[in-house]
Design a protein around this nucleic acid. Structure first.
Length: 577
DNA sequence: GCCGTTTTCGGCCCGACTGTTTTCAGTCG
């Protein structure tokens, strides 16, 4: 049996889509491949099984041709069609897709007329002035391409949430000083609380004659490094931090439509427009119109728009075409958890291991946040790099926690550990030691390079351990720098469901692990979730808000999250009564 | 390429901006 997973199939389908674009194929055909790639990577079922049973052809968006290709890929690990397509272009040509302003048509032109197929070659050609006389190009586009290459060298194209959030709030506060702004909001992936952010979309409503001054305010903000586009309704800049920010100014009556449109996701919007068409309406960023006579349907906010389309309101975090539209049609959407629902949090570090603040300081910070409890889980003895705790340290820490708990009126510290999952899946203390703790977070911190099968077995072993309460950061990924270890998350989640164990959403903005796509699957399997900050200092406690965003993207309600429970219920859940 | 209780053929979301053009193609979201 060939070993090819969903991720690999999806990436091949996506590559085929790009190659077809380069060839100038029918755009709807290329879109079919991109859609299929998305569908496959979002599947929670076993791909091998779907292929073997032939069910793959019944998945929406996968017809006869794609089903055959996917089947070939999964069973043989190869696909002649893909190999033939790949052979038509040098592999480095994909680099060019990342330069702003260059799309498939222009790349094709560059390749066929100038033989350019890599970033190096492109940069060289620009410096030789060879794009100036090329049909469809010119001095200006050559200059823009050069700047695009520079920007790529200088910046990675995506940003962690705190960086994007800071840039967005700074910018929107700056713009709000302009005269005549009626409504303003951040849209795009930041509003949807995506785990990483590509660019920032800001939306403003104002009267037409106030617009030029607002645009001017925007492009002259102190953080702006370069203005990319400056139109009447849309401007685009790059900040010194490298983040791209777009500003749209619309009339106030258009604001809800524009907010909906620019919040996306793209896939969600495509579905919404199709639904509008089903109602003989046309939806765009300016309004909702009757197809027959172009008359507008007035809507005061987003909720109103959705109502007109026969849907209940869909929270921005859910707008990923991940089942939210079907659920909205049936009025079956979850009542999403909010940050204010949290009653405490777990998985926090102190000066006992590699944290910066003492037990007392962490507890005080938790109380300041009006929480009822805090779960301390310092590193375990195997984590020597992080001053992991010996059994004696654990005893000492227990004593201090008991003494602090006696002083508190209505606050409680839970004593736990973040115990390393060793290579064979065992935890790094004996059962007696672990059994005396209030809770155990089991995490992988070493031996990342195991095969998927081995790693999956290892983690399931840890889940089976009677002392394990929570599986910590299930994939170990570091966003924008390190992929997670190879692991079959579907099997992990099913094991957690079978053994009644919880999984954390590690809320550190570099982790956000469990991924929201899998959070939804975990919920469907009945697995309980902890929203944990993995805090190494008192400010780190605030990271739970990123975790709440991910929880919301994963359709979680208050009842799904243990640390949204009152302290009595948590005590019962942890079996401490 | 996919899809269909109006359809197995003819649709497939829609508009702004740029840079090239001299009325528009390509890119982007």
């Amino acid at each position: 049996m060939a070993l090819i997973n969903k991720k690999e199939v999806a990436s091949i389908l996506e590559e085929i889509g790009t190659l077809l674009e380069l060839k100038g194929e029918n755009p709807f055909k290329t879109r079919a491949y991109f859609n299929a790639a998305r569908t496959i990577s979002g599947l929670t079922g076993d791909l091998q099984q779907l292929v073997e049973s032939g069910e793959i052809g019944k998945v929406k968006g996968i017809g006869k041709a794609l089903a055959e290709k996917i089947t070939t890929l999964v069973t043989t690990g190869e696909l002649a069609y893909y190999e033939e397509l790949k052979a038509e272009f040098p592999p480095t040509i994909f680099e060019l897709m990342n330069i702003p302003g260059l799309g498939p048509k222009k790349i094709k032109k560059l390749y066929e007329t100038l033989g350019i197929s890599s970033l190096i070659e492109l940069e060289y050609a620009c410096n030789e002035n060879r794009l100036v006389d090329l049909e469809g190009f010119g001095a200006k586009s050559q200059e823009n391409i050069l700047q695009g290459i520079e920007a790529r060298k200088k910046y990675s194209e995506k940003f962690h949430l705190p960086v994007a959030e800071h840039a967005a709030t700074t910018m929107i506060e700056h713009i709000r000083k302009a005269k005549g702004i009626k409504r303003s909001d951040i849209a795009g992936s930041l509003r949807r609380k995506k785990e990483i952010i590509g660019d920032i979309d800001i939306l403003v409503s104002a009267a037409q004659n106030d617009t030029p001054a607002i645009m001017k305010k925007f492009v002259s903000a102190p953080e702006v490094e370069r203005v990319i586009a400056g139109g009447k309704t849309k401007s685009s800049v790059i900040l010194k931090s490298g983040i791209n920010v777009d500003l749209r100014v619309v009339a106030d009556k258009e604001f809800p439509f524009a907010l909906h449109y620019f919040t996306g996701s793209k896939e969600h919007n495509v579905r919404m427009r199709t639904i509008a068409k089903d109602h003989n309406l046309k939806l765009n960023e300016y309004g909702l119109f009757h197809e027959s006579n172009n008359k507008p349907v007035a809507c005061k906010d987003e909720k109103d728009i959705l109502k007109k389309l026969g849907l209940v309101y869909i929270e921005p975090e859910l707008r990923e075409d991940f089942g939210e539209i079907e659920a909205a049609e049936k009025n079956n959407l979850p009542g999403l958890i909010e940050e204010k629902d949290l009653r405490g949090t777990f998985h926090c570090h102190t000066t006992y291991s590699d944290g910066a603040n003492t037990l007392k300081e962490m507890a005080d910070a938790a109380m300041q946040r009006k929480w009822q409890y805090l779960g301390i889980a310092d590193h375990s003895k195997s984590a020597q790099y992080a001053r992991g705790l010996s059994k004696a340290d654990l005893k000492k820490q227990r004593k201090e926690i008991n003494s602090l708990n006696e002083q508190f009126d209505s606050f409680q510290i839970f004593h736990g550990i973040e115990s390393d999952i060793l290579a064979d899946g065992s935890l790094d203390y004996d059962d007696k030691t672990l059994g005396e703790l209030d809770f155990v977070v089991a995490s992988v911190h070493s031996r990342f390079k195991m095969s998927e099968a081995e790693m999956t077995r290892r983690i399931i072993n840890a889940i089976k351990n009677k002392n394990t309460t929570i599986l910590g950061h299930p994939t170990g990924r570091l966003l924008l720098s390190r992929d997670g270890y190879q692991v079959d998350l579907v099997k992990i989640i099913e094991a957690a469901a079978d053994y009644g164990k919880a999984i954390e959403i590690n809320s550190h903005p570099y982790r956000l692990d469990l991924d929201w796509r899998m959070v939804k699957f975990a919920k469907e399997k009945g697995v309980k979730i902890f929203i944990n900050p993995d805090a190494h200092n008192t400010e780190g406690l605030d990271d739970v808000r990123f975790g709440v965003g991910i929880a919301r993207k994963g359709w979680l309600e208050k009842e799904d999250v243990i640390n949204a429970m009152e302290v009595d219920r948590v005590i019962k859940y942890l079996g401490l009564l």
